[in-house]
Amino acid sequence: MIELLSGGFSTEFGLAAICSRMAVAAGFGLVIGFDREVRSVSAGLRTHMLVSLAAATFAILAFEIVAQATREGIDNADPVRIIEAVTAGVAFLAAGTIIRGGDRVRGLTTGAGLWLAGAIGLACGVGAWAVAFLATLLGIVILTVLRHVERILALKPRTASRDAGNGR
Protein backbone atom coordinates (compact mmCIF):
# COMPACT_ATOMS: atom_id res chain seq x y z
CA MET A 1 0.00 0.00 0.00
CA ILE A 2 2.77 2.46 0.95
CA GLU A 3 4.61 1.53 -2.24
CA LEU A 4 1.49 2.34 -4.25
CA LEU A 5 1.10 5.68 -2.48
CA SER A 6 4.73 6.71 -2.80
CA GLY A 7 5.65 5.20 -6.15
CA GLY A 8 2.39 4.51 -7.95
CA PHE A 9 1.90 8.13 -8.90
CA SER A 10 3.86 11.30 -8.52
CA THR A 11 2.90 14.17 -6.27
CA GLU A 12 4.21 17.70 -5.99
CA PHE A 13 4.87 17.41 -2.24
CA GLY A 14 5.66 13.78 -1.59
CA LEU A 15 3.90 11.40 0.76
CA ALA A 16 5.52 12.66 3.99
CA ALA A 17 4.52 16.28 3.36
CA ILE A 18 0.97 15.31 2.41
CA CYS A 19 0.59 13.12 5.51
CA SER A 20 1.96 15.78 7.82
CA ARG A 21 -0.26 18.52 6.37
CA MET A 22 -3.35 16.36 6.68
CA ALA A 23 -2.47 15.16 10.18
CA VAL A 24 -1.80 18.69 11.45
CA ALA A 25 -5.06 19.90 9.91
CA ALA A 26 -7.02 17.12 11.62
CA GLY A 27 -5.19 17.81 14.90
CA PHE A 28 -5.91 21.53 14.83
CA GLY A 29 -9.53 20.75 13.90
CA LEU A 30 -9.66 18.52 16.98
CA VAL A 31 -8.46 21.39 19.16
CA ILE A 32 -11.20 23.71 17.87
CA GLY A 33 -13.85 20.96 17.98
CA PHE A 34 -12.98 20.04 21.57
CA ASP A 35 -14.69 23.16 22.93
CA ARG A 36 -17.85 22.34 20.98
CA GLU A 37 -17.74 18.69 22.10
CA VAL A 38 -17.43 19.65 25.77
CA ARG A 39 -20.55 21.78 25.38
CA SER A 40 -22.42 18.89 23.70
CA VAL A 41 -23.28 20.73 20.52
CA SER A 42 -24.06 18.81 17.36
CA ALA A 43 -20.85 19.74 15.54
CA GLY A 44 -18.06 18.57 17.84
CA LEU A 45 -14.73 16.82 17.53
CA ARG A 46 -15.35 14.67 14.49
CA THR A 47 -17.12 17.36 12.50
CA HIS A 48 -14.43 19.98 13.07
CA MET A 49 -11.69 17.47 12.36
CA LEU A 50 -13.35 16.35 9.12
CA VAL A 51 -13.94 19.92 7.93
CA SER A 52 -10.32 20.83 8.61
CA LEU A 53 -9.01 17.65 6.98
CA ALA A 54 -11.25 18.13 3.93
CA ALA A 55 -10.10 21.72 3.53
CA ALA A 56 -6.45 20.62 3.74
CA THR A 57 -7.12 17.95 1.15
CA PHE A 58 -8.63 20.49 -1.23
CA ALA A 59 -5.68 22.84 -0.72
CA ILE A 60 -3.20 20.04 -1.44
CA LEU A 61 -5.23 19.08 -4.50
CA ALA A 62 -5.09 22.69 -5.72
CA PHE A 63 -1.29 22.53 -5.70
CA GLU A 64 -1.30 19.10 -7.32
CA ILE A 65 -3.63 20.29 -10.09
CA VAL A 66 -1.47 23.33 -10.84
CA ALA A 67 1.69 21.20 -10.86
CA GLN A 68 0.13 18.63 -13.19
CA ALA A 69 -1.25 21.34 -15.47
CA THR A 70 2.19 22.99 -15.61
CA ARG A 71 3.84 19.66 -16.50
CA GLU A 72 1.30 19.26 -19.31
CA GLY A 73 1.85 22.78 -20.64
CA ILE A 74 -1.45 24.21 -19.43
CA ASP A 75 -0.89 27.70 -18.07
CA ASN A 76 -4.36 28.77 -16.93
CA ALA A 77 -4.92 26.49 -13.94
CA ASP A 78 -6.50 28.51 -11.11
CA PRO A 79 -6.12 27.04 -7.59
CA VAL A 80 -7.98 30.00 -6.08
CA ARG A 81 -11.23 28.55 -7.44
CA ILE A 82 -10.74 25.47 -5.27
CA ILE A 83 -10.17 27.62 -2.20
CA GLU A 84 -13.32 29.62 -3.04
CA ALA A 85 -15.28 26.39 -3.39
CA VAL A 86 -14.02 25.14 -0.02
CA THR A 87 -14.97 28.44 1.60
CA ALA A 88 -18.48 28.27 0.12
CA GLY A 89 -18.92 24.61 1.07
CA VAL A 90 -17.83 25.14 4.66
CA ALA A 91 -20.07 28.21 4.90
CA PHE A 92 -22.98 26.04 3.75
CA LEU A 93 -22.23 23.47 6.47
CA ALA A 94 -21.79 26.19 9.07
CA ALA A 95 -25.10 27.81 8.13
CA GLY A 96 -26.80 24.46 8.74
CA THR A 97 -25.79 24.60 12.40
CA ILE A 98 -27.60 27.90 12.99
CA ILE A 99 -31.11 27.61 14.42
CA ARG A 100 -33.51 30.47 15.07
CA GLY A 101 -36.26 29.93 17.60
CA GLY A 102 -38.36 32.91 18.61
CA ASP A 103 -36.04 35.68 19.66
CA ARG A 104 -33.05 33.35 20.16
CA VAL A 105 -30.43 32.30 17.65
CA ARG A 106 -28.34 29.24 18.42
CA GLY A 107 -25.36 27.69 16.69
CA LEU A 108 -23.59 30.83 15.54
CA THR A 109 -20.43 30.00 17.48
CA THR A 110 -20.45 26.43 16.18
CA GLY A 111 -20.91 27.70 12.63
CA ALA A 112 -18.05 30.14 13.07
CA GLY A 113 -15.92 27.34 14.53
CA LEU A 114 -16.58 25.18 11.47
CA TRP A 115 -15.62 28.05 9.20
CA LEU A 116 -12.43 28.52 11.22
CA ALA A 117 -11.70 24.78 10.99
CA GLY A 118 -11.99 25.06 7.21
CA ALA A 119 -9.59 28.00 7.12
CA ILE A 120 -7.14 26.14 9.37
CA GLY A 121 -7.35 23.14 7.08
CA LEU A 122 -6.62 25.29 4.04
CA ALA A 123 -3.65 26.83 5.84
CA CYS A 124 -2.30 23.37 6.66
CA GLY A 125 -2.91 22.19 3.11
CA VAL A 126 -0.81 24.98 1.64
CA GLY A 127 1.87 24.49 4.30
CA ALA A 128 1.25 27.73 6.18
CA TRP A 129 1.92 26.12 9.56
CA ALA A 130 2.34 29.40 11.46
CA VAL A 131 -0.98 30.72 10.16
CA ALA A 132 -2.74 27.47 11.08
CA PHE A 133 -1.18 27.40 14.55
CA LEU A 134 -1.97 31.03 15.28
CA ALA A 135 -5.56 30.67 14.04
CA THR A 136 -6.00 27.60 16.25
CA LEU A 137 -4.50 29.35 19.26
CA LEU A 138 -6.62 32.47 18.81
CA GLY A 139 -9.71 30.33 18.19
CA ILE A 140 -9.22 28.56 21.51
CA VAL A 141 -8.69 31.87 23.30
CA ILE A 142 -11.90 33.21 21.79
CA LEU A 143 -13.88 30.07 22.61
CA THR A 144 -12.66 29.61 26.17
CA VAL A 145 -11.27 32.79 27.67
CA LEU A 146 -13.92 35.08 26.26
CA ARG A 147 -16.69 32.77 27.50
CA HIS A 148 -15.43 33.36 31.05
CA VAL A 149 -15.16 37.10 30.46
CA GLU A 150 -18.76 37.18 29.19
CA ARG A 151 -19.97 35.36 32.28
CA ILE A 152 -17.99 37.61 34.62
CA LEU A 153 -19.45 40.67 32.96
CA ALA A 154 -22.90 39.00 32.98
CA LEU A 155 -23.23 39.49 29.25
CA LYS A 156 -24.59 36.00 28.76
CA PRO A 157 -26.67 33.82 31.08
CA ARG A 158 -25.25 30.46 32.10
CA THR A 159 -28.28 28.27 31.33
CA ALA A 160 -31.67 28.42 29.67
CA SER A 161 -33.37 27.69 33.02
CA ARG A 162 -31.76 30.80 34.45
CA ASP A 163 -33.29 32.77 31.57
CA ALA A 164 -36.76 31.46 32.44
CA GLY A 165 -36.34 32.32 36.11
CA ASN A 166 -35.39 35.90 35.35
CA GLY A 167 -38.27 36.46 32.98
CA ARG A 168 -36.01 37.01 29.95
Rank of each mutant, 00 (worst) to 15 (best):
D103W: 01
P79Y: 06
T57E: 07
W115V: 10
A154R: 08
A95D: 10
T109R: 02
V149K: 03
R39G: 00
G139M: 03
F34H: 14
I18H: 14
G101D: 13
R162Y: 12
V141Y: 01
G44F: 05
A94M: 02
R168H: 12
G33F: 01
A56K: 08
A119P: 08
L30E: 14
G7H: 11
A135V: 08
A95H: 05
A43R: 08
T11W: 04
W115D: 04
I142D: 08
R106Y: 08
T87W: 07
R81H: 11
A26M: 12
V86R: 04
V131Y: 00
I142G: 08
A62Q: 06
V131S: 10
A69N: 08
A85D: 15
A94D: 02
P157W: 00
G127L: 11
I2Y: 15
A154P: 00
V90Q: 00
W129P: 00
I120S: 00
I83H: 05
G44V: 11
E12T: 00
G44Y: 09
L53C: 07
D75H: 11
G96W: 07
L146H: 06
D103T: 10
R39Y: 07
V51Y: 05
T47M: 14
D163H: 12
F92S: 07
V38A: 09
N76F: 10
E150K: 08
V80F: 01
A132W: 04
I2W: 15
P157D: 04
T159Q: 05
A123V: 10
I32T: 02
A128I: 12
V24C: 01
S6Q: 14
K156E: 10
R39I: 04
G121C: 06
D75I: 05
G125Y: 09
R147L: 13
L93Q: 07
G113H: 00
F34A: 15
L61S: 12
F9M: 08
S161M: 14
A85N: 15
L4Y: 14
A85L: 13
A135G: 10
V149L: 05
G89C: 01
G89A: 05
Q68T: 10
I120D: 00
I18G: 15
V105A: 05
A117P: 02
M1I: 06
M49P: 09
I83N: 07
T70P: 11
G165Q: 15
E12C: 06
D163C: 13
L61I: 04
G73A: 01
